[in-house]
Amino acid sequence: MIRLSGDTSMPGPLRVAKALRRTALQAVPTVLIIVILNFFLLRLAPGDAAEVMAGEAGSATAETLAALRNRFGLDLPVLQQLADYLWTLAHFSLGDSPRYNMPVAALIGQRLPNTLALMALALGLALVIGIALGALMASFVGRLPDRVLSVLALLFYSIPSFWIGLMLIVLFSVKLGWLPSGGAESIGAGYTGWEAFVDRLRFMVLPGLSLALFYVAIYARLTRGDMLEVRAQDYVRTAQAKGLPPFAVTTRHVLRNALLPVTTMAGIHLGGLMGGAVVVETVYSWPGLGRLAYEAVMGRDFNVLLGILLLSSLLVVAVNALIDLFQAWLDPRIEVR
């Protein structure tokens, strides 16, 4: 949490250490409550991993189901299952996956880099494109560029990401043949070094763009409104009166202060990016946590789902702490609490 403060005398490292300590103290009970709520909510879903696995094997007898439930501890009372899971977490383990027959941490570790790379690309595209479009809209407020870009932003905000993804596949993969329609890399190509990086980037462009366009619309509108509000402040008129070039006034005074709400929203949207990745990764067959979460839901693999939800919670807490520190750097009057 942040608030304005007139005291900026505390050295930077001390402010950072104070903020990180408070964030850690707040994060522990928050994450614990999230884990418990997720555990009980998932138990409300019909079926379990034993039923799915027995049905897929074609041997869904009462004896088989009982044996599977006993093997995975699904026949225990819910409170005892919760206590066992919390005890497992206390030993820095996420348990085992009944469906994949491997530790959940190892399974998540295989998919996590792909999702983080996709989320970083999507968030970077959304911020760069959204801020640039918002600044352009604010510069031509009330004129044709502002109106055209406002309509485009409204379209991106209204259209579902899966439909955008399908249309991008039709245009860039089917019609033009410029980009691949799915997967993570060219199978059997054997690329290394720079060629491997470029190859993976080609596969990331369409899913990253599909995930980013919704947030581009939000950041563009938010940047436009904040820049118009900041432009009316006294210190901006003072900078203009001193004879500073318009570009310097816009970048140093207007845009820098207008970025505060945008960065706040970016931290809030991180959880939404993870949720949107479920749809986008399924459309593009991207081997990430979103697709793993979908497979875990279909297979009732609750241990995997709990691990993904726990990781998402920790990621949101960490990024919001970094956003608070970034805002304090943008405006030294802001005190991180």
Rank of each mutant, 00 (worst) to 15 (best):
A120P: 09
L127D: 08
G225I: 06
G290K: 03
G142P: 00
V151T: 15
E281K: 06
H91E: 02
A106F: 06
F214I: 10
L244F: 13
A83C: 05
F162H: 05
S210W: 01
L149H: 08
L20W: 09
S312N: 10
V336P: 15
G12A: 14
G95P: 04
S59Y: 06
M1P: 14
A83D: 08
T64D: 09
Q81S: 07
G299K: 01
P13T: 13
N303D: 01
K175I: 10
R237Y: 06
G134Q: 00
L213A: 06
Q110C: 05
P245R: 15
D7N: 15
T238C: 09
L86S: 01
G183D: 08
F247R: 15
A266C: 09
W163F: 14
P145K: 09
G193W: 09
N257F: 06
V52T: 15
D226C: 04
S210C: 07
Y191G: 05
I34T: 14
P246N: 07
G12C: 06
L259W: 07
Y284C: 04
R22Q: 13
G73M: 04
N101D: 15
L116K: 09
L136W: 12
D199S: 11
L116T: 10
M265L: 14
G58I: 13
W87L: 14
A120I: 09
D234T: 08
